[in-house]
């Protein structure tokens, strides 16, 4: 536990001073998005890495958070912080209710149900034009402000978003180490065994689904208030898939791995812009190569790579699935 705490403080300190190295250019803006996607990836990782329940519709909660926050503030002039709370609570309730029928399903049926949920929500964003503005989006969402500070610059937004991201990471690390975390891992390994040991598997799964939804909604609300514009395309099926990729590339079950995954997938396209038309090919190739050579995710793959480089040991094929 002590080691975990040290890791956390090191990470927080690194995030805190990072802007000094990132500078004032556009990169700081990219890191605002890295923060948002980190929150989202951590949320999915709790569900997928910890409890072993797949979701292909995570973008639905992200979008609901953004739209509830956005519509309340832009159309009904509700205070942004209040709207953030409303968004998070509402999505938590929705996820809790949906969780009961959805998490009864397993394997590819669960994948299908979550995918369907994502698509239905996406269509609702598109079709309820009077409320959401439809495909052309919703603009005029205000920035968040706190005691006279308006979060309207990239640097301010960086600290705002990362304050939440770091808090979520701390809570998630604690959750994973807690009794609930152990129970969830038991469900991951064998639901039947966990039930026999007296774990209320069904309720726990619904709870973690709901927590995951709440965290994603928070990210959505932050997205709405930092970008100040939202449209359905930012919350479609491809976003759900991208989040899944972040979690797996980072390392299933590793909270800090989710940060790495989010950072890599958000930064790569920025670096590949110079390849012009070839960027999509380079991106696809990179994805394949990373996964092929680090099947345990970056968080396990990178240390292994270093060890094998310096100790000249052959790189072991990682069969380890979770840590």
């Amino acid at each position: 536990m002590k080691q975990e705490l040290l890791k956390f403080f090191l990470f927080t300190a690194l995030i805190g001073i990072a802007p000094v190295f990132i500078g004032k250019g556009y990169l700081i803006n990219v890191f605002v998005f890295v923060g948002i996607y980190t929150i989202l990836a951590v949320a999915l990782n709790l569900l997928l890495g910890l409890a072993g329940q797949i979701s292909l519709g995570q973008a639905a909660f992200f979008g609901l958070g953004a739209y509830i926050s956005g519509v309340l503030t832009a159309t009904h002039a509700v205070n942004p912080w209040l709207s953030m709370v409303i968004a998070v609570v509402t999505v938590g309730i929705i996820a809790f209710i949906l969780g009961f029928p959805i998490l009864k399903l397993k394997g590819h049926y669960l994948a299908m149900a979550t995918l369907g949920m994502g698509i239905i929500v996406y269509i609702i964003f598109n079709e309820t034009v009077d409320i959401t503005g439809g495909p052309s989006g919703l603009s005029g969402i205000p920035h968040l402000s706190l005691g006279g500070i308006i979060f309207n610059s990239d640097l301010k937004n960086y600290y705002l978003v990362w304050f939440f991201a770091v808090t979520i990471i701390l809570l998630s690390v604690n959750l994973a180490a807690s009794r609930i975390g152990r129970a969830l891992r038991a469900i991951h390994d064998s639901e039947v065994a966990a039930r026999i040991m007296g774990v209320n598997a069904r309720l726990l799964k619904v709870q973690i689904f709901s927590i995951s939804g709440v965290i994603s909604a928070l990210a959505g609300s932050l997205y709405a208030h930092t970008v100040t514009f939202i449209s359905p395309t930012s919350f479609g099926f491809n976003v759900s898939i991208e989040l899944l990729t972040m979690v797996i590339i980072g390392g299933l079950g590793s909270i800090y791995g989710s940060f790495l995954g989010a950072a890599i997938l958000t930064l790569l396209p920025e670096f590949f812009r110079t390849f012009q038309d070839y960027d999509i090919i380079v991106y696809g190739l990179t994805l394949i190569v990373i996964t092929m050579f680090m099947p345990g995710g970056l968080v396990r793959g990178v240390p292994l790579l270093f060890r094998s480089l310096f100790k000249k040991e052959p790189m072991p094929q990682s069969n380890e699935k979770r840590g």
Binding site: Y26, N29, F33, E270
Partner: peptide, 16 residues
């Protein structure tokens, strides 16, 4: 065609 990417690119054009 992605609003998020457009925002990032606009920032890059202006700041860098």
């Amino acid at each position: 065609g992605d609003a998020t990417k457009a925002v990032q690119a606009a920032n890059r054009l202006i700041k860098d």
